[in-house]
Simulated assay, not measured.
Amino acid sequence: MTVWWLLFGVFAVSWLLTLCLRRYALSKSLMDIPNERSAHSIPTPRGGGVAIVVSYLLVLPVLAELDLLGTDVLYGLLGAGLLVALIGFADDHGHIAARWRLLGHFIAAAWALYWLGGFAPVELFGVTIDLGWFGHLLALIYLVWMLNLYNFMDGIDGLASIEAISVCLGMCLVYWFSESVYLIWAPVMLATAVAGFLWWNFPPARIFMGDAGSGFLGLILGVITLEVASHKPVLLWSWIILMGVFIVDATWTLIFRLIRGEKVYEAHSSHGYQHAARRFGHKKVTLTVLVINAGFLLPISIFVALYQMNAVVGLVTAFGPLFFLAYLLNAGKAKTR
């Protein structure tokens, strides 16, 4: 019964705080003004992702007190999540140079890794491999990339929210099938916090998430992914597979922009989902991602977790069609008029 009240409380706090933030943004003219890179056509309040940050960080100590979350994970999520949210909040309200933002992101990622004890051994082809210091470095880069790619992918109504909810709830189902139900609390509470915000963010959005929310979500998802590997290494691959839409689109686009010599830290509108949104609309693209996650990526994640499919085979099976879709959508190519 306590858990159900927690879920209700997290949703209610997120929902109510998003409403308050929307009114505050309107009163202070904190608006996202459309420009040539925008995917929206009317000024819209921004910064609603703070509701996700507050509602989620508030519930973490309660989970720890109920012995549903380890204290090391608690400190890692709290410290790293708060720092990233503060950086994003400051950037939403002004501007922080890219190099200082990136430095803050690496500090937050390092903090989380410290409390997680570094990168746990990975499992490939039935063999557990300890990558040592190289694994810690990869994990650090992974967290910073997850943080930033989520920011990049938060460009149309409801997309970042639907991705977080579907991935988190999908992994809860993976945990259930793989007899790892004790791991569900961090992701299910995150999904609930995002659901309260999604009420206001579903197409057509009445408020945008902002950097504080998107960067926070990317980092938290990355930390949860790495933490679960210390319990059951194969679940790391299930998480990565289920997050495939965001990972593939963002990575493909980044690579092509680097090849063209573009400044990758500057705003743009060349992701596959942005090209798709201009053709089909925000709601169709957002719901399509939900269908891909639930109907295609989730079954593969379950098969991998149950050792019915090799992790490498699962990654290729999942990412292959996604890379082809990114190609079809012209991901990485500049917007055409």
Rank of each mutant, 00 (worst) to 15 (best):
G210E: 03
A212R: 04
G215L: 12
G215K: 11
F216R: 02
F216P: 07
L217K: 02
L217T: 00
G218R: 06
G218C: 06
G218Q: 02
G218T: 01
I220F: 09
I220N: 06
L221N: 10
V223C: 12
V228G: 09
A229C: 13
A229S: 15
S230A: 15
S230V: 08
H231Q: 14
P233W: 09
L235Q: 12
L235T: 08
L235E: 11
L236D: 09
W237K: 03
S238A: 14
W239S: 02
W239C: 03
W239A: 01
G244Y: 10
I247E: 06
I247C: 05
D249T: 04
T251D: 03
T251W: 04
W252K: 02
T253E: 06
F256M: 06
R257F: 04
R257A: 04
R257C: 07
R257N: 07
R257D: 02
L258I: 12
I259V: 13
I259R: 13
I259Q: 12
I259L: 12
R260Y: 04
R260P: 01
G261A: 03
G261E: 04
G261F: 12
E262T: 06
E262S: 11
E262L: 13
K263F: 09
V264M: 07
A267W: 10
S269R: 15
S270T: 11
S270N: 11
Y273E: 00
Q274S: 08
H275L: 04
H275F: 08
A276W: 05
A276S: 11
A276T: 00
R279F: 02
R279D: 13
F280E: 08
K283M: 11
K283A: 15
T286D: 03
L287G: 04
T288D: 01
L290V: 08
V291D: 04
I292E: 05
A294W: 10
A294V: 13
F296Y: 15
F296G: 08
L298M: 05
I300G: 02
S301L: 00
F303H: 04
V304M: 07
L306K: 14
Q308P: 00
M309I: 09
